[in-house]
Design a protein around this nucleic acid. Structure first.
Lengths: 261, 261
DNA sequence: TCAAAAGTGTTTTTTCTACACCCATGC
DNA sequence: GCATGGGTGTAGAAAAAACACTTTTGA
């Protein structure tokens, strides 16, 4: 089922016509995680007419599935489709909307910020987090932003509105996901080494793990295929390459890994 | 911070004035769990002018925190405040709104279902689940419903719209909660026996557990106080009574019980 | 007095934890 | 040749699973 939605060609027309096209007072925000240089990265946007960075987000068309809106944001910012995306929380505090900021944005594009303008209403936002392969994702700013870039999780600046909070909550959810679901398929390249997978886990958890116990536990999940080849051109002993067993990985995502009861 | 919101005195005025007071296209639905007779129960409403039962839900006032709306629904249906409430998912499929049903409802109260009426728009709903003490909760229907009652989880009928789906998802979330957080404080009376707590777990999980291993594990969490007294007037050997250690229970909710990594 | 439910403990199995040793590679 | 990272195995501790005996009570 393919549906076409109007495209915002520029800030002005979006802000002007938004009220007609979008579901009122509703947005989605995506925390897009990538992994590179043994660091967890997050994709951030720098909006025009704003001095702070923000999470990539967007509005939901009137008859669009909310999740579809998140997929759309994701695809337009990274060029990737068919990736891991999960809704984790909806942020509904009235104070989270920064009317002053939005009013200034309206004025900056020469629009009259009249009372009742759709963009000046209070917004509820549905938070999604995504796991993407850093090397295949190509960050691209949209019409209303001047930059789009990966940020190291350790160096996240003060973001707009409540976006630091939204990001923090995504990270907590991701950490919990490790406890009953596998992670890696979407964050690592097709072929990867066990140490690389371990770095990923360590980065998400923020602590170091024992090399041998990690390998045993991970192999015990039965979701990995060890390939014949080893990683080329590395210092020291060449580690084996692995890939995920699609079927078993999917089943593990579905059924969970270890259940306490 | 106490805020007063307009009260819907009856269906007509709510449907008529709703557009002025409520955040457009947004609702909350609550899956209220109780435990009685060794059975997990859910509180359902029977709406006037409708033949199906529904989850208790409501709309969100324009400047009201979404969570506050859920608390409001909960309090008005059960008479309880300060209970366990958790947001678990937001349902945003366009097809979930049953316009036909709402149109009929409008007509049934003598209102013109004109195009663009707020009640005929597509709705996003934020799902919350609550755990309440069955014996202190007093089910009370609101102005727009003719009945409010506890239903056995095994006997849930076909509900309105996507409410069966919303309920199912709440149950899944509740099951997962058992794996890293304690449950019971809100579902059981102040004093309870170990077998009662075990029945609760068994009911949620849908499977039987070993009596002795359950007790060992549960005591190991260190969240229980064993009281001096035993349950009175029961057949067979009288079991000890327990209560939850508030401080430790709260800490366990906060920090989690067992973390896989 | 006996069936049913509850309290407590023990054995076995499995999993987790903490290590030690050898191998390959680049400098 | 040696420091660094990677592959593999093993002993001890801890947790989970399986199971048995005794006590209390109402019918």
């Amino acid at each position: 089922m393919e549906t076409t939605y109007p495209v915002e060609d520029k800030v002005g027309s979006m802000l002007q016509k938004g009220g007609e096209h979008f579901h009122p007072g509703l947005s989605v925000d995506c925390v897009i995680f990538g992994f590179h240089d043994n660091q967890l990265k997050v994709l951030l946007l720098k909006m025009k007419h704003a001095d702070k960075w923000a999470l990539p987000g967007g509005f939901v068309y009137k008859e669009e599935d909310v999740e579809h809106a998140a997929v759309r944001v994701l695809e337009s910012r990274t060029g990737l489709s068919d990736i891991f995306l999960r809704q984790y929380h909806t942020f509904g505090a009235p104070a989270r909307s920064d009317r002053k900021l939005n009013r200034e944005l309206l004025e900056s594009v020469g629009m009259e910020p009249h009372e009742g303008h759709w963009f000046l209403q209070r917004f509820i936002t549905v938070g999604y987090y995504a796991l993407v392969d850093f090397s295949s994702a190509v960050p691209r700013p949209d019409e209303i932003s001047e930059a789009c870039a990966w940020w190291d999780l350790q160096e996240i600046p003060l973001l707009t509105m409540d976006h630091n909070h939204i990001l923090q909550k995504a990270l907590e959810t991701l950490r919990k996901q490790l406890n009953d679901q596998p992670i890696g398929y979407n964050l690592l390249p097709e072929k990867f080494t066990m140490p690389e997978l371990q770095r990923l886990y360590e980065t998400i958890l923020g602590k170091r793990l024992d090399r041998r116990n990690f390998q045993r536990k991970m192999l015990g999940y039965g979701i990995l295929n060890r390939l014949e080849e080893r990683k080329q051109g590395v210092a020291h002993k060449a580690p084996f390459l692995y890939s995920f067993n699609q079927e078993r990985y999917g089943a593990a995502l579905q059924d969970g890994l270890q259940q306490g009861w």
